[in-house]
Write a protein that binds this DNA or RNA. Structure first.
Length: 467
DNA sequence: TTGGGG
């Protein structure tokens, strides 16, 4: 009887991480606080895998990595937040080059995941198939939760970029909120992330005379997001697209939940069609942050302040004010963002906003009027939140161009609007454009009564290009 | 088996 009890007790022992490191090739039990969660991916074998890093009192700084394998993504641990607790039963300690890590063997290992917050219940939010809860679990979980409270929180933000400081290059870290996740093609995912700041505007290299055949896109996803999805996005701050299209491995990106704050590590940034794009690689990692993470709360608070303020919706990179090349009526009407416009609850409305004109159709001012003399052209507008097409028709064109200027004057005005440098060089079509921030008045309307939202259009009015 | 730290 006493012998049985003893065996049971030994079997139940949790090793401290320092002791685990010395137990190469042994089957042990571990319990720890999760500090990092790798992106789940398809292994080169038949399984899915992911790596999680844990710490405990004996090894609070470096911790130890656990490699999980499972037949499918669903069977891998789905950690809700860094700081949660994982209990590991019968895992194997492995030596690897200079380090030691732990293998979760799907044949005999098991795990349970618990919230890390002190005072939470002792019911695991996920268990593996072979896991058996025991009464004693509570004691270890409570102990770790108590230790976490006393622990200095790590300043995860120190080596992370903010979207306002985004730059092209390799291997950056980014703390952001995941707004939306969708599969755009088989195995190709797009994430929509946000941190409340405005990404800097970039030069547009796309040739204007391609605008009819191959226009500058309004977004990077092949199918535009529905209005319903956009309505859940914040009105202010850049929505960054992230893709795994350069990654040869199949990542479990469907596990990223919208609404979560995440720290991404080792991601690249590129500009595509003048839009910032985050590139997820197989070496990229991410960790879910707790909902009350300091950096996340600070981003949210800064955004709340900006949204409340009457005049702070103009892009932060537009300082101190939009270019004087455009003047609008209604100077006392506060600016809104293009995301405000895209998600406005009524179809017919008027707005004033600060935008850059990134393309025009037609490409050349000589074609801005129809043969009958009526102005009709399309502008592609952008701000940090979105891009839209906006049309200039008839009398709004007369107002916009101040009548019918000579073609030379029109070319000058067009170049100023698009941010094309004036040179003697004839082919301005070849040059990169850096459009200035300008204000404009827009109104929205629909062109099909049977599809009110689907046929929404935007027109420029009460706006004059001074040039 | 597969993956694996800085």
């Amino acid at each position: 009887m006493s012998n049985l009890k003893r065996v049971d007790h030994d079997d139940y022992k949790f090793l401290r991480i320092v002791d685990a490191i010395a137990s190469i090739n042994q089957k042990i039990n571990l319990i720890g606080v999760i500090t990092e969660i790798g992106i789940s991916k398809q292994s080169r074998g038949p399984d899915c895998c992911c790596t999680i890093k844990i710490v405990d009192e004996s090894n609070a700084s470096s911790g130890i990595s656990i490699n999980f394998f499972a037949e499918n993504f669903e069977k891998l641990p789905h950690v809700e937040s860094a700081g949660d607790i994982i209990q590991l039963v019968r895992v194997v300690v492995k030596r690897h080059q200079s380090g030691v890590n732990v293998l979760f063997d799907k044949k005999f290992s098991s795990f349970a995941l618990y919230e890390g917050r002190e005072g939470s219940n002792f019911v695991p939010y996920q268990v593996s198939s072979k896991f058996h809860a025991r009464d004693l679990d509570k004691k270890f979980i409570a102990g770790l939760r108590k230790w976490t409270v006393s622990r200095q929180p790590e300043t995860a933000s120190s080596d992370s970029l903010s979207l306002k400081d985004i730059k092209q290059g390799h291997q950056f870290n980014l703390i952001c909120k995941v707004l939306h996740v969708c599969e755009v093609k088989d195995g190709e995912w797009m994430l929509f992330v946000w941190d409340g700041t405005d990404a800097p505007p970039v030069n547009i290299h796309k040739k204007l005379d391609e605008e009819l055949e191959n226009p500058l896109p309004l977004q990077l996803e092949p199918t535009p997001l529905s209005r319903k999805v956009l309505c859940k996005f914040p009105a202010v701050g850049t929505v960054l697209r992230m893709t795994n299209d350069k990654c040869n491995e199949k990542l479990g990106l469907h596990l990223l939940k919208a609404g979560k704050w995440v720290q991404f590590r080792n991601i690249d940034f590129e500009v595509r069609y003048g839009l910032w794009c985050g590139i997820l690689l197989s070496k990229s990692k991410f960790s879910f942050l707790p909902n009350d993470d300091d950096y996340a709360l600070q981003c949210q608070r800064t955004n709340d302040e900006r949204v409340k303020s009457k005049w702070d919706r103009q892009p932060t990179t537009c300082f101190p004010r939009p270019s004087k090349i455009i003047d609008t009526d209604y100077q006392d009407v506060p600016f809104v963002t293009l995301m405000d416009i895209l998600t406005y609850p009524e179809v017919i409305a008027k707005f004033r906003c600060v935008v850059r004109v990134v393309a025009t159709l037609p490409a050349h001012p000589r074609d801005f009027q129809a043969p009958c003399g009526t102005y009709r052209l399309r502008l592609t507008l952008e701000d940090p939140t979105a891009r839209i097409h906006a049309y200039i028709y008839a009398e709004d064109g007369v107002k916009f161009f101040g009548g019918y200027p000579s073609i030379d004057k029109m070319v000058k005005m067009h170049n100023a609007l698009l941010g094309v440098e004036e040179t003697d060089d004839a082919d301005s079509n070849e040059k990169a454009r850096n459009p200035p921030w300008v204000e404009c008045c827009l109104n929205s309307y629909n062109i099909d009564e049977s599809d009110v939202w689907g046929s929404i259009r935007y027109r420029i009015f009460a706006t004059t290009l001074i040039g």
